[in-house]
Amino acid sequence: MARVVYCGGKFVSEHEARLGLFDRGFLFGDAVYEVTAVIGGKMIDNDLHLARLERSLSELAIPMPLPREEIEAIQLSLIEKNGLQEGTVYLQVSRGEEDREFLYSEGLKPTFIAFTQVKNLLNNKGQTQGLAITLVEDPRWERRDIKTVMLLGQVLAKRDAKAAGFDDVWFVEDGTITEGASSTAYIVTHDRRIITRPNSRAILPGCTRAALLDLCSRHGVVLEERPFTVAEALAAAEAFQTSATSLVTPVVRIGDVSLNGGVPGPVTRQLQACYLEHVNMLRAAG
Protein backbone atom coordinates (compact mmCIF):
# COMPACT_ATOMS: atom_id res chain seq x y z
CA MET A 1 0.00 0.00 0.00
CA ALA A 2 1.17 3.53 -0.77
CA ARG A 3 1.98 5.78 2.15
CA VAL A 4 -0.30 8.66 3.01
CA VAL A 5 1.64 11.95 3.11
CA TYR A 6 0.70 15.56 3.84
CA CYS A 7 1.27 17.88 0.89
CA GLY A 8 -0.54 20.90 -0.51
CA GLY A 9 -2.63 21.27 2.63
CA LYS A 10 -4.17 17.78 2.52
CA PHE A 11 -3.51 14.09 3.03
CA VAL A 12 -2.77 12.31 -0.26
CA SER A 13 -1.09 9.17 -1.55
CA GLU A 14 2.67 9.52 -1.89
CA HIS A 15 2.19 8.88 -5.63
CA GLU A 16 -0.11 11.90 -5.93
CA ALA A 17 1.98 14.39 -3.92
CA ARG A 18 3.59 17.18 -5.98
CA LEU A 19 5.80 20.19 -5.26
CA GLY A 20 6.13 23.19 -7.55
CA LEU A 21 9.11 23.62 -9.86
CA PHE A 22 9.78 27.10 -8.45
CA ASP A 23 9.69 26.17 -4.77
CA ARG A 24 12.62 27.89 -3.05
CA GLY A 25 13.42 24.76 -1.08
CA PHE A 26 14.18 23.01 -4.38
CA LEU A 27 15.94 25.93 -6.07
CA PHE A 28 17.94 27.38 -3.17
CA GLY A 29 17.75 24.96 -0.23
CA ASP A 30 15.72 27.73 1.40
CA ALA A 31 13.97 25.38 3.82
CA VAL A 32 14.23 23.67 7.18
CA TYR A 33 13.19 20.24 8.43
CA GLU A 34 12.57 18.18 11.54
CA VAL A 35 12.52 14.45 12.26
CA THR A 36 10.70 12.98 15.26
CA ALA A 37 11.21 9.37 16.34
CA VAL A 38 8.17 7.12 16.71
CA ILE A 39 8.40 4.10 19.03
CA GLY A 40 5.40 1.95 19.84
CA GLY A 41 3.26 4.29 17.78
CA LYS A 42 4.15 7.28 20.02
CA MET A 43 6.27 10.33 19.16
CA ILE A 44 9.36 10.86 21.31
CA ASP A 45 10.38 14.37 22.50
CA ASN A 46 8.15 15.93 19.86
CA ASP A 47 7.72 19.14 21.85
CA LEU A 48 11.47 19.71 21.57
CA HIS A 49 11.39 19.10 17.82
CA LEU A 50 8.50 21.49 17.20
CA ALA A 51 10.22 24.15 19.32
CA ARG A 52 13.39 23.72 17.26
CA LEU A 53 11.39 23.88 14.03
CA GLU A 54 9.92 27.20 15.12
CA ARG A 55 13.36 28.51 16.09
CA SER A 56 14.96 27.46 12.79
CA LEU A 57 12.17 29.11 10.82
CA SER A 58 12.50 32.27 12.90
CA GLU A 59 16.25 32.46 12.18
CA LEU A 60 15.43 32.45 8.45
CA ALA A 61 12.42 34.79 8.80
CA ILE A 62 10.05 32.10 7.52
CA PRO A 63 6.68 32.01 9.31
CA MET A 64 5.36 28.82 10.86
CA PRO A 65 3.06 27.21 8.26
CA LEU A 66 0.53 26.29 10.97
CA PRO A 67 0.25 26.57 14.75
CA ARG A 68 2.18 23.91 16.65
CA GLU A 69 -0.95 22.08 17.77
CA GLU A 70 -2.15 21.75 14.17
CA ILE A 71 1.23 20.43 13.04
CA GLU A 72 1.15 17.87 15.84
CA ALA A 73 -2.36 16.83 14.79
CA ILE A 74 -1.06 16.23 11.26
CA GLN A 75 1.82 14.15 12.63
CA LEU A 76 -0.57 12.03 14.69
CA SER A 77 -2.87 11.55 11.70
CA LEU A 78 0.02 10.37 9.55
CA ILE A 79 1.09 7.87 12.20
CA GLU A 80 -2.47 6.54 12.40
CA LYS A 81 -3.15 6.50 8.64
CA ASN A 82 0.11 4.65 7.95
CA GLY A 83 -0.08 2.34 10.96
CA LEU A 84 3.43 3.39 11.99
CA GLN A 85 4.79 1.62 15.07
CA GLU A 86 8.53 2.31 14.79
CA GLY A 87 10.21 4.88 12.60
CA THR A 88 10.03 8.64 12.06
CA VAL A 89 7.78 11.52 11.11
CA TYR A 90 9.51 14.01 8.79
CA LEU A 91 8.49 17.67 8.48
CA GLN A 92 9.80 20.16 5.92
CA VAL A 93 8.97 23.84 5.49
CA SER A 94 10.30 25.99 2.66
CA ARG A 95 9.92 29.73 2.21
CA GLY A 96 7.44 29.15 -0.60
CA GLU A 97 7.16 29.35 -4.35
CA GLU A 98 7.79 32.13 -6.86
CA ASP A 99 9.91 32.72 -9.96
CA ARG A 100 13.63 32.18 -9.37
CA GLU A 101 15.32 35.22 -7.82
CA PHE A 102 17.89 35.36 -5.04
CA LEU A 103 15.89 38.07 -3.28
CA TYR A 104 12.48 36.79 -2.26
CA SER A 105 9.17 38.61 -2.04
CA GLU A 106 7.65 39.38 1.32
CA GLY A 107 4.53 37.51 2.33
CA LEU A 108 5.25 34.21 0.54
CA LYS A 109 3.13 31.31 1.78
CA PRO A 110 5.43 28.59 3.19
CA THR A 111 5.37 25.15 1.58
CA PHE A 112 4.75 22.45 4.21
CA ILE A 113 5.09 18.71 3.68
CA ALA A 114 5.15 15.78 6.10
CA PHE A 115 5.55 12.02 5.80
CA THR A 116 6.38 8.92 7.84
CA GLN A 117 9.17 6.39 7.39
CA VAL A 118 9.44 2.89 8.83
CA LYS A 119 12.83 2.44 10.56
CA ASN A 120 14.38 0.00 13.01
CA LEU A 121 15.39 2.32 15.85
CA LEU A 122 15.76 0.01 18.84
CA ASN A 123 17.47 -3.19 17.69
CA ASN A 124 19.85 -2.21 14.92
CA LYS A 125 23.58 -2.97 14.73
CA GLY A 126 24.60 0.44 16.05
CA GLN A 127 22.47 0.11 19.18
CA THR A 128 23.69 -3.38 20.01
CA GLN A 129 27.31 -3.45 18.80
CA GLY A 130 28.37 0.17 18.34
CA LEU A 131 29.72 2.19 15.42
CA ALA A 132 33.06 2.75 13.75
CA ILE A 133 33.57 6.48 13.15
CA THR A 134 35.92 8.33 10.84
CA LEU A 135 36.98 11.97 11.29
CA VAL A 136 36.93 14.60 8.51
CA GLU A 137 37.28 18.37 8.32
CA ASP A 138 33.90 20.06 8.73
CA PRO A 139 32.72 21.13 5.24
CA ARG A 140 29.54 23.01 6.24
CA TRP A 141 28.46 26.65 6.44
CA GLU A 142 28.72 28.62 9.65
CA ARG A 143 25.03 28.53 10.73
CA ARG A 144 24.85 24.85 11.64
CA ASP A 145 22.47 25.70 14.49
CA ILE A 146 19.67 26.14 11.91
CA LYS A 147 18.30 22.78 10.76
CA THR A 148 18.26 23.58 7.05
CA VAL A 149 17.87 21.10 4.21
CA MET A 150 21.36 21.99 2.89
CA LEU A 151 22.85 18.59 3.66
CA LEU A 152 25.19 17.97 0.72
CA GLY A 153 28.28 18.16 2.94
CA GLN A 154 26.83 15.50 5.21
CA VAL A 155 25.73 13.34 2.27
CA LEU A 156 29.21 13.33 0.71
CA ALA A 157 30.93 12.73 4.06
CA LYS A 158 28.68 9.78 4.89
CA ARG A 159 29.17 8.34 1.39
CA ASP A 160 32.96 8.52 1.68
CA ALA A 161 32.90 7.08 5.21
CA LYS A 162 30.88 4.08 4.07
CA ALA A 163 33.20 3.52 1.11
CA ALA A 164 36.14 3.49 3.53
CA GLY A 165 34.49 0.87 5.76
CA PHE A 166 33.14 3.12 8.51
CA ASP A 167 29.59 3.37 9.83
CA ASP A 168 29.47 7.15 10.27
CA VAL A 169 31.53 10.33 10.47
CA TRP A 170 32.34 13.07 12.99
CA PHE A 171 33.39 16.53 11.82
CA VAL A 172 36.55 18.36 12.95
CA GLU A 173 37.23 22.10 13.00
CA ASP A 174 40.40 23.74 14.36
CA GLY A 175 41.44 20.48 15.97
CA THR A 176 38.19 19.96 17.92
CA ILE A 177 35.17 17.78 17.22
CA THR A 178 32.08 19.78 16.22
CA GLU A 179 29.46 17.02 15.89
CA GLY A 180 28.49 13.99 13.86
CA ALA A 181 27.21 14.33 10.31
CA SER A 182 23.69 13.75 11.66
CA SER A 183 24.22 13.44 15.41
CA THR A 184 25.64 14.99 18.58
CA ALA A 185 29.09 13.65 19.56
CA TYR A 186 30.19 12.72 23.11
CA ILE A 187 33.22 11.17 24.77
CA VAL A 188 33.52 9.55 28.21
CA THR A 189 36.74 10.09 30.16
CA HIS A 190 38.48 7.39 32.17
CA ASP A 191 37.06 8.91 35.36
CA ARG A 192 33.53 8.54 33.87
CA ARG A 193 32.87 12.19 32.97
CA ILE A 194 30.83 12.82 29.82
CA ILE A 195 32.02 15.63 27.58
CA THR A 196 30.06 17.22 24.73
CA ARG A 197 30.39 20.51 22.91
CA PRO A 198 28.13 23.37 24.14
CA ASN A 199 25.43 24.72 21.84
CA SER A 200 26.54 27.49 19.50
CA ARG A 201 26.33 28.36 15.81
CA ALA A 202 28.89 25.58 15.21
CA ILE A 203 26.48 22.73 16.00
CA LEU A 204 22.80 21.85 15.82
CA PRO A 205 21.04 22.07 19.20
CA GLY A 206 20.02 18.42 19.36
CA CYS A 207 16.64 17.49 20.80
CA THR A 208 17.82 14.06 21.98
CA ARG A 209 20.87 15.87 23.37
CA ALA A 210 18.59 18.15 25.42
CA ALA A 211 16.64 15.19 26.77
CA LEU A 212 19.83 13.30 27.62
CA LEU A 213 21.42 16.27 29.39
CA ASP A 214 18.31 16.54 31.55
CA LEU A 215 18.51 12.82 32.35
CA CYS A 216 22.19 13.15 33.29
CA SER A 217 21.33 15.97 35.69
CA ARG A 218 18.53 13.99 37.29
CA HIS A 219 20.61 10.81 37.63
CA GLY A 220 23.73 12.50 38.98
CA VAL A 221 25.86 11.73 35.92
CA VAL A 222 28.74 14.21 35.58
CA LEU A 223 28.62 16.01 32.24
CA GLU A 224 30.82 18.84 30.97
CA GLU A 225 29.78 21.06 28.08
CA ARG A 226 33.03 22.10 26.40
CA PRO A 227 34.87 21.50 23.13
CA PHE A 228 37.04 18.38 23.05
CA THR A 229 39.99 17.71 20.79
CA VAL A 230 40.69 14.89 18.38
CA ALA A 231 43.43 13.71 20.75
CA GLU A 232 40.94 13.58 23.63
CA ALA A 233 38.50 11.59 21.51
CA LEU A 234 41.17 9.05 20.53
CA ALA A 235 42.24 8.68 24.18
CA ALA A 236 38.68 8.42 25.57
CA ALA A 237 37.41 5.49 27.58
CA GLU A 238 34.15 5.46 25.61
CA ALA A 239 32.26 7.51 23.04
CA PHE A 240 28.71 7.70 21.76
CA GLN A 241 26.36 9.83 19.69
CA THR A 242 22.71 10.84 19.90
CA SER A 243 19.98 11.85 17.48
CA ALA A 244 16.26 11.34 17.03
CA THR A 245 16.85 8.29 14.84
CA SER A 246 19.95 6.87 16.54
CA LEU A 247 18.79 7.47 20.14
CA VAL A 248 21.94 6.79 22.22
CA THR A 249 24.36 4.85 20.02
CA PRO A 250 27.78 3.58 21.17
CA VAL A 251 30.92 4.46 19.20
CA VAL A 252 33.48 1.66 19.56
CA ARG A 253 36.12 2.80 17.06
CA ILE A 254 37.38 6.21 15.93
CA GLY A 255 39.62 5.89 12.90
CA ASP A 256 42.05 3.08 13.71
CA VAL A 257 41.63 3.41 17.48
CA SER A 258 39.33 0.99 19.33
CA LEU A 259 37.61 2.25 22.47
CA ASN A 260 36.84 -0.01 25.45
CA GLY A 261 38.19 -3.04 23.62
CA GLY A 262 35.89 -2.44 20.67
CA VAL A 263 32.65 -2.99 22.59
CA PRO A 264 30.11 -0.53 24.06
CA GLY A 265 31.23 0.75 27.47
CA PRO A 266 29.38 0.71 30.81
CA VAL A 267 28.63 4.44 30.94
CA THR A 268 27.15 4.34 27.43
CA ARG A 269 25.05 1.31 28.35
CA GLN A 270 23.82 3.14 31.45
CA LEU A 271 22.78 6.13 29.35
CA GLN A 272 21.08 3.89 26.79
CA ALA A 273 19.04 2.34 29.58
CA CYS A 274 18.17 5.76 31.05
CA TYR A 275 17.05 7.08 27.69
CA LEU A 276 14.95 4.01 26.91
CA GLU A 277 13.30 4.39 30.32
CA HIS A 278 12.55 8.00 29.33
CA VAL A 279 11.09 6.77 26.02
CA ASN A 280 8.89 4.23 27.78
CA MET A 281 7.61 6.86 30.20
CA LEU A 282 6.68 9.13 27.27
CA ARG A 283 4.90 6.24 25.57
CA ALA A 284 2.96 5.41 28.73
CA ALA A 285 2.00 9.06 29.22
CA GLY A 286 0.90 9.41 25.59
Rank of each mutant, 00 (worst) to 15 (best):
V4S: 06
V5F: 00
Y6T: 15
F11N: 10
V12L: 01
V12P: 00
S13H: 15
A17H: 03
R18N: 03
G20Q: 08
R24C: 01
G25N: 12
V35M: 10
T36Y: 04
A37P: 12
K42D: 00
N46C: 10
L50P: 09
A51Y: 01
S56Y: 05
I71R: 11
I74A: 04
Q75P: 00
L78Y: 09
K81A: 06
E86H: 07
L91V: 03
E101H: 14
L103C: 07
L103K: 11
E106C: 09
E106R: 14
G107M: 03
P110H: 10
T111F: 06
A114S: 11
T116M: 06
T116D: 10
V118W: 14
V118N: 15
L122G: 07
G126I: 06
Q127T: 05
Q127V: 09
A132G: 14
T134Y: 03
L135M: 04
V136D: 02
W141F: 09
R143I: 13
D145W: 09
G153H: 04
Q154F: 11
A161K: 12
A163P: 00
A164V: 11
A164T: 07
F166V: 11
W170Q: 13
V172I: 14
V172F: 13
D174F: 02
E179L: 12
G180R: 15
S183I: 02
S183E: 09
Y186T: 02
T189G: 05
R193D: 15
I195G: 04
T196S: 10
N199Q: 11
P205E: 12
P205Q: 07
T208I: 15
L212T: 00
L215I: 14
L215G: 10
S217D: 07
S217P: 02
R218Y: 04
V222A: 13
V222I: 10
V222M: 05
E224Q: 02
F228C: 06
A236H: 03
E238K: 02
E238W: 00
A244H: 15
T245Y: 06
V251Q: 05
R253M: 04
I254N: 13
D256K: 09
V257R: 05
V263W: 00
P264W: 01
P266Y: 12
R269M: 15
Q270V: 09
C274L: 05
